[in-house]
Amino acid sequence: MSGKRPIKFKILELFLDGNEHWNYEIVSKIQDEYNMNGNFYRDSINFDIIELASGGMLKDVEQEVDEAGIYKKGFLLHKYVITDFGKIRSSDACLRYV
């Protein structure tokens, strides 16, 4: 698909359904869609999520230890939800606001 949007736009779009999502779900969706395989891109996309959270657009609502190694064994998994500010910034970015 051509005309992909920047990764942070896509992350916000995925969160605009209003549901809580685990970071590994979002990261693997983006990796598939943007064809960005490998651990380097995985960490880079995850850092985008951290940046969005630190900018107040996403909120870290739950953490869990990755016992099974679904993302990074022995590290924390984070669950995020979009904030009101995140919704406003998303609509600035011309993302559809459901």
Binding site: R5, F9, A93
Partner: peptide
């Protein structure tokens, strides 16, 4: 080095919001 040319172009294209 970071493999971000794709993202660079994607960001450039979003002129109005970004």
């Amino acid at each position: 080095v970071l493999g971000k040319y794709g993202e660079l172009v994607r960001t450039l294209k979003e002129f109005k919001p970004c």
